[in-house]
Amino acid sequence: MSSTQAPRRLVPALQSPVCWSEEDQTVLVCTAVSDVTHDVKNFVFEPEGEQVFDFEAGQFLTLMLDIDGYPVNRCYTISSPPTRPHRLAITVKRVLGGTVSNWVHDNIVPGSKVNAMAPLGAFTLAKQPAEKYLFLSAGSGITPLMSMLRTMYDLGSHADVVFLHSARTPSDIVFRHELAAIEMLMPNLRVVHVCENDYPSERWGGMRGRLSPTMLHTIVPDLHERVTFNCGPVPYMEAVRRILGELEYDLGNYHEESFTFDDPAQPGATPPPEGVEYDEIAIAPPPAGDDGVATYSVEFTKSGRTVTCRADQNVLDAALAAGIRLASSCSQGMCGTCKLPKLSGEVEMNHNGGIRPREVAAGKILACCSKPLSDLSLDA
């Protein structure tokens, strides 16, 4: 595996930590790039300033890129652990036809600078601490679980972990050698890889095929005693949920996250598609559409535009339908890119960790997952 590095700054041993906050954007400087597999690279960054990285294992950050003159935001899970706060890494798979992943592979080198938003996300170990875990991943979905495992290793955790990763071939197993090394040093860790096919230069001798109820029960006979974290492509996630259902697993102990941001897309395009409860508010009955669904007006004060938004429609979709382009990325309430100050009105917002409680208290919303409960005025 090849790697390139830029000269590293010495980090003062007694440096006072200056951490990112939810409002922060910062400039990251790439210090190293290395090959993980034939189509996966690891990118290590330091902050341009004197910040240290403060995040939870399993969270992601949003890169703010300029690709061929178009602003593009994309979220990548942090694969490094928060226990090593002076540097941060993302691990990116090159996707055939993927605008952003190909640009990252071809353009980010040691010395490159990129803008990024502070880490976010609710898919973290802190969500449900346990004595026994099952980590399930496929493809590049391994990255948040690798951050979790590296954190547990650094902290000397005694938790019992089964790390089950699915790949197409042996050459596609991400972090294969590092996982083997950590397994030798963590007596309560068991790593199992499942491959669908052989690789021309390596015949696979381990578990073969796709994950099934029988395979999962064989590998993890004490499944019902474990808290499960799962990340991977959408079909894999759906298969895991179906398998766990067949095995009558308690989904109250199940946590998942899936990113589809590397799907092929044109620059500037928006990829396809803990709840906050609000007290009832006294508002006048809104006008109804032809199908009886209420409609509201949404004013964008900076552009001077006002659009109509149905009560069952997200603000972002209404804006895009009217030709108003808002900054957005995930469209799933995860990345925080579409965060807007709300000047007046009320919304129903169901997000996935992309906005913090104090931001909600300050009147901010995520346009991609907010539906109007009244007429709105937004600072955009």
Rank of each mutant, 00 (worst) to 15 (best):
R210Y: 15
R208W: 06
V33T: 15
N253G: 01
F259T: 11
S258E: 09
M184Q: 06
Q266L: 02
V100K: 11
F261W: 01
L343C: 03
L316H: 05
L155Y: 02
Q313P: 08
G69E: 04
S101A: 00
E238L: 15
V298L: 03
Q128H: 10
K371I: 10
A288W: 02
E248K: 12
E50W: 14
A288M: 10
C231R: 00
V72T: 01
L63N: 04
D317L: 08
L120V: 00
M349F: 03
G292K: 15
E238W: 06
V11N: 09
N253C: 00
A269E: 13
A57E: 05
H177S: 08
N102P: 07
H38E: 07
I283G: 05
Y296N: 05
M334C: 11
L149D: 00
G354Y: 09
I182W: 09
R74A: 14
I283D: 07
A265R: 08
P273W: 11
A181F: 07
L251G: 04
L376M: 09
L96I: 03
D291L: 01
L373Y: 01
T214R: 02
T143E: 12
P235K: 03
K93L: 11
T228E: 11
G252Q: 04
S374C: 02
E299C: 10
S212C: 14
E256W: 11
K132H: 08
G98Q: 07
T295L: 12
C19A: 15
S303I: 10
A327D: 02
V36F: 12
V44I: 11
Y236F: 04
L28T: 04
E274H: 14
S101R: 05
E56I: 08
A57D: 00
V298W: 00
F43S: 03
R74W: 10
M152Q: 14
L378H: 00
D39H: 09
I281K: 09
R84S: 03
E274N: 13
R94M: 07
G97A: 01
V298E: 01
N102L: 15
R325E: 08
D312Y: 07
V276N: 07
H158A: 15
R150H: 12
D66N: 00
E346P: 00
Q266R: 01
P235I: 13
D290P: 10
E131I: 02
P187R: 08
L120H: 08
F123R: 06
V347F: 05
H193S: 07
G97R: 04
A322H: 03
V240D: 01
I67L: 09
R9Q: 12
H217A: 02
D317Y: 11
N352M: 14
L125H: 02
M186E: 01
M349C: 10
H177W: 03
T337W: 10
V240A: 06
L378T: 01
F229I: 13
D291T: 05
R9C: 07
